[in-house]
Amino acid sequence: MFPIQRPRRLRSHPQLRRMVSETVLNTSDLIYPLFAVPGEGMATEVRSMPGVYQLSIDKIVEEAKEVYDLGIPAIILFGIPADKDTDATGAWHDHGIVQLAATAVKEAVPDLIVIVDTCLCEYTSHGHCGYLEVGDLTGRVLNDPTLELLKKTAVSQAKAGADIIAPSGMMDGFVKAIREGLDEGGFQDIPILSYAAKYASAYYGPFRDAAESSPQFGDRRTYQMDPGNRREALKEIELDIAEGADMLMVKPALSYMDIIWQVKQASNLPVAAYNVSGEYAMIKAAALNGWIDEQRVVLETLTSFKRAGADLILTYHAKDAARWLASGS
């Protein structure tokens, strides 16, 4: 007790503070999301996400090189196809936008890990993550038929050179279906990063601008989780582990750090946290208005995800964070 115990002793010098730091954020913790679009020389800034762009494949390759040079180990690719239909053809076609982007990046930067988002909402004309009943206007996705689409999509992405498959549609049994598809296709060594606990969150708004994936009607609450549910997240991760997931993701991150912590405690698998578009947009908006110190807030936020238990952090701040960490400031 005071005066014998004085915790401030270990805070007295910057070097000492670093020596006893319990949680250290590293560039190797980061994954950078990229949005691929058709065309050439295209770089269109997302209105609600300053500093984030829809990029043609040549520009994606340029970004991938920069990301690798910054020491960031991985990107995750999302695609916006030229055409959309009810069969999500652009998701699983061998010449789909994500497939082409994955191949181009692996040819240009072979040591960069390419994760691919394995979902259908960007590719369906109605904006939902799978097949719907004819005439359905509620957004209730048909689970089992959608699994076949996801299996086809994952296999085509693996053929294109993807290093990690990341299914995000929250269909029941999607990890099992994708694992079977990959194994049958000869891709036994491709890991699955499952969006195991993905909530029906209001924080996704800007992403839907970036990925052009807003539902045309209804919402995604019949397949994404209720924000109030904690035990359900643990049930979902147990199922995904049993089905063959190699890594687990919690999405969003900022309002779900209790879930990140509990998933970490309940599993011996690597845990990823997705620092989603709305979280990014709030920080950028406040920074652009001069209300916060962007660098300090970003690094504090990312560190908090790691403190909560995240091994990997998907974030649109990744490039800036890597530069700040390298500068030691």
Results as ranks from 00 to 15, higher is better:
170 M>D: 02
192 I>F: 08
128 H>Q: 04
76 I>G: 07
106 K>W: 12
307 R>I: 04
31 I>H: 12
239 L>K: 15
217 F>A: 09
206 P>S: 07
267 S>R: 07
262 Q>V: 02
151 K>M: 09
129 C>I: 03
14 P>F: 04
222 T>P: 00
255 S>A: 15
249 M>F: 12
260 I>P: 04
173 G>C: 06
15 Q>P: 00
215 P>Q: 06
71 G>S: 13
33 P>G: 01
283 I>A: 03
166 A>T: 00
133 E>W: 02
131 Y>H: 11
314 L>T: 13
264 K>E: 06
99 Q>K: 13
164 I>S: 09
243 E>F: 07
242 A>Y: 09
115 I>Y: 13
277 S>M: 01
99 Q>N: 10
2 F>Q: 02
144 D>V: 11
80 I>K: 00
229 N>H: 09
63 E>C: 11
169 G>L: 01
142 L>I: 10
37 V>Y: 02
86 T>K: 15
87 D>H: 12
193 L>F: 06
233 A>Q: 08
150 L>K: 02
132 L>Q: 05
277 S>V: 02
37 V>T: 04
290 G>F: 04
191 P>L: 04
85 D>N: 15
215 P>W: 02
307 R>M: 11
238 E>K: 14
230 R>D: 11
156 S>I: 02
110 P>H: 04
197 A>L: 10
288 L>M: 15
212 E>G: 05
165 I>V: 08
283 I>S: 12
63 E>H: 14
155 V>N: 13
62 E>W: 04
8 R>A: 15
57 I>N: 14
169 G>Y: 01
246 D>R: 05
123 Y>P: 03
145 P>K: 05
114 V>R: 04
132 L>G: 03
248 L>T: 04
288 L>D: 14
146 T>F: 00
222 T>G: 01
153 T>V: 03
187 F>Y: 15
181 G>L: 13
21 S>H: 10
257 M>W: 09
253 A>W: 06
204 Y>H: 03
274 Y>G: 00
59 K>C: 05
168 S>R: 00
230 R>S: 11
184 E>V: 14
304 S>D: 08
191 P>Y: 13
156 S>T: 14
139 G>K: 07
100 L>K: 15
97 I>T: 08
178 I>Q: 00
263 V>T: 13
124 T>L: 09
233 A>N: 08
162 A>L: 06
237 I>A: 08
192 I>P: 01
123 Y>R: 01
275 N>E: 12
140 R>Y: 07
249 M>K: 09
17 R>Y: 05
229 N>C: 08
314 L>N: 05
2 F>I: 06
86 T>W: 09
19 M>P: 00
213 S>H: 01
276 V>Q: 07
58 D>T: 01
5 Q>R: 14
251 K>C: 09
203 Y>K: 07
190 I>G: 03
173 G>W: 00
118 T>A: 15
243 E>C: 04
137 L>F: 05
103 T>C: 07
298 V>P: 11
266 A>Q: 10
265 Q>C: 07
183 D>F: 03
30 L>K: 08
38 P>Y: 05
113 I>S: 13
319 K>A: 06
149 L>A: 14
273 A>R: 12
197 A>H: 03
317 H>C: 09
189 D>P: 02
277 S>N: 02
112 L>T: 06
231 R>H: 11
24 V>Q: 11
246 D>A: 08
203 Y>P: 00
190 I>P: 03
308 A>L: 03
67 V>C: 12
92 W>A: 01
109 V>T: 10
57 I>Q: 02
98 V>R: 07
1 M>V: 10
